[in-house]
């Protein structure tokens, strides 16, 4: 008895176990670090864009489609507005739309998933049929309808993306909760007499944290991508400066036929870079949560012999 109690564990190492430990380990991998740096850079730049943008985004400062030069690093667009300032400004709106839509999607998805996974039965049936229904609504078509009925605006874009993207999260969370609620410690909480709210809030939701984080990061990717696509089709607020509208404007005003690549490429590269960054982070978290994705028993590597040092009893 006394021996058991004196067993000391190394907290610094031991603490890394569990779901949150896996998250911390996952974030320390090279792809995740690169992704975090990319996201961080974009966040910083877009937060401080009003301060660091060299020219105004509404008043022309140069000639129409002026090529990149020392004064205008990325050239100018069809209205003679500095591209660099536009791209910096556009990032702010694009990322705001992406993050907000992703948070809405994850919140709805988590609530649907937890309720339907925890209660099962008819609750599950009803919620999952609703999920199925939302899954098959085509986004672009709905957006066209919304834009036609209520007029194109950023809020509508956010809502359409947010209200259509939660379905996959709901499914993933539901599956996870279904397994969590069968865990012994949840059953123990039931046998203590804890209420459903208490069990969900103290025993189930915290376990979902990393899963939701991974899902959020991946959802941001999708949301920004969708926002750009919708804006490019002219379904977003035409007055707002986002990466999508920058490209749309340039495309419409013949940037391609005049060879003004600088009006389209920078915004496109930004979207690509941010999506890759989010994807790297999200994917490493997913791998960290599910180590089976990383290693395989059918791997080509195998155990190896330790090279012999010394002889006889000294051999290591």
């Amino acid at each position: 008895m006394s021996e058991e109690i004196t067993v000391t564990t190394r907290p610094d190492v031991e603490r890394r176990r569990g779901v949150w430990g896996a998250l911390r380990t996952a974030v320390a991998t090279p792809p995740a670090i690169i992704g975090l740096i990319v996201i961080g850079l974009f966040l910083l730049v877009s937060v401080f864009s009003p301060l660091i943008k060299p020219y105004s985004t509404s008043v022309p400062s140069c000639e129409v489609f002026e090529p990149p030069s020392g004064r205008h690093w990325l050239g100018c667009d069809d209205g003679g507005v500095d591209m660099l300032s536009l791209v910096l400004q556009g990032g702010q709106v694009s990322m705001f739309v992406g993050f907000t839509a992703a948070v809405i999607a994850i919140a709805i998805g988590a609530i649907f998933g937890v309720l339907s996974g925890y209660f099962g039965g008819w609750v599950d049936t009803v919620l999952m049929r609703i999920t199925d229904y939302f899954m098959v609504i085509p986004q672009i078509v709905l957006m066209i309808v919304v834009a036609a009925v209520w007029g194109p605006s950023l809020n509508h874009v956010i809502m359409v993306i947010g209200f259509l993207m939660w379905t996959s999260t709901a499914r993933v969370v539901r599956a996870q909760v279904k397994s969590l609620r069968e865990r012994v410690y949840v059953r123990r909480a039931v046998s203590i007499g804890a209420s459903h709210t208490r069990i969900i809030l103290t025993h189930i939701v915290p376990q979902l944290g990393p899963l939701l984080i991974a899902n959020t990061v991946l959802a941001i990717t999708l949301a920004i991508f969708n926002e750009t696509a919708l804006a490019f089709l002219g379904l977003s607020d035409p007055t707002a400066v986002t990466w999508g509208t920058i490209m749309e404007h340039a495309f419409e005003r013949g940037a391609i036929s005049t060879g003004a690549w600088w009006a389209i490429v920078p915004a496109g590269l930004c979207v690509a870079a941010l999506i890759v960054g989010c994807y790297l982070v999200g994917n490493s978290i997913e791998d960290g949560l599910n180590p089976r994705l990383r290693s395989s028993y059918l791997s080509t590597k195998s155990w190896r012999m330790r090279p012999l040092v010394g002889r006889g009893g000294d051999a290591l």
Partner: peptide
Amino acid sequence: RPLRRNVQMIYQDPYEALDGR
């Protein structure tokens, strides 16, 4: 629920019976 005070259960697997969080 109020009766649960009188009856308590000890589970087989101590690794599973405690919430790791």
